[in-house]
Amino acid sequence: MIPFDFAYYQPASLAEAGGLFAELAAQGKEPMYYGGGTEIISFSRLYQLFPRAVIDLKGIPECNTLEQKDGKLVIGAATTLSQIQEANVFPLLSWCGGRVADHTMRNKITLGGNICSRIPYREAVLALLVSDSEMIIWGKQGLKRVGINQVFHQTLLLEPGEIVVQVVIDEELTKVSFTSMKQTMDGFVHYPQDRIGYPVVSIAALKKKNQINFAFSGLCSFPFRSTEVESFLNHPSLPWDEKIHQAVETLPAKIIDDMEGSADYREFVLKNMLSDIVKRLEG
């Protein structure tokens, strides 16, 4: 139960949502946009979040699309992870998003919500990073379209009041070879999901021509794709041990060390997974 009162709004258009946000912000109500609302519930009931006003984006038509058009896959930000998994239009995204939380939760958690989550793992993002997806973002100047790798650095860099509307993926890239692996504290997670838990390490890898793109979760306190790491892993002449060693040396931040897994152990798992993934994708 959420132990305090807050205002709830369900706008029917992006403009209305943005207007509400500005108005509520001006009143000092620190408004929050949301899709599924699972984090608002789980953090608020523990006194870790105190929204005074929330704006529900599920009523906005553009946020609810799920269509393939002109060689592009367009997914609305309010689409739930379960809907994406069932539609299975981008298998790598199904895999990554399909291992977030549990089935009941994925019926609520939205793609936009997972991208903008406060939780460090946000595994749906991995599929978007490796496929060089584009984000449609609504702001004061209207809609803009930007590559996720331009605007996602640890978190999605949004201006106050901006809304993630849609994610656009090149359909070509939904059909290339990929792999994705996840291990929790308790063990390896297969797909369809057989275990539930935060990742000790979760990796998505996608082969684009001769290059393998990698994105990681569970290693650092944010999901990431790193050109440096990739350049080692795709190095044409280094032996595999060395590639992996170099990649681990160039991680963008310290490895998480907590009760789900020590930093040493996460590194061990990372190395094992990378060698498995490379074997698989290089064939």
Partner: peptide, 10 residues
């Protein structure tokens, strides 16, 4: 979230 239990699929 952090206290792990056996889940159905396991």
């Amino acid at each position: 979230r952090t206290y792990h239990l056996m889940r159905f699929g396991e």
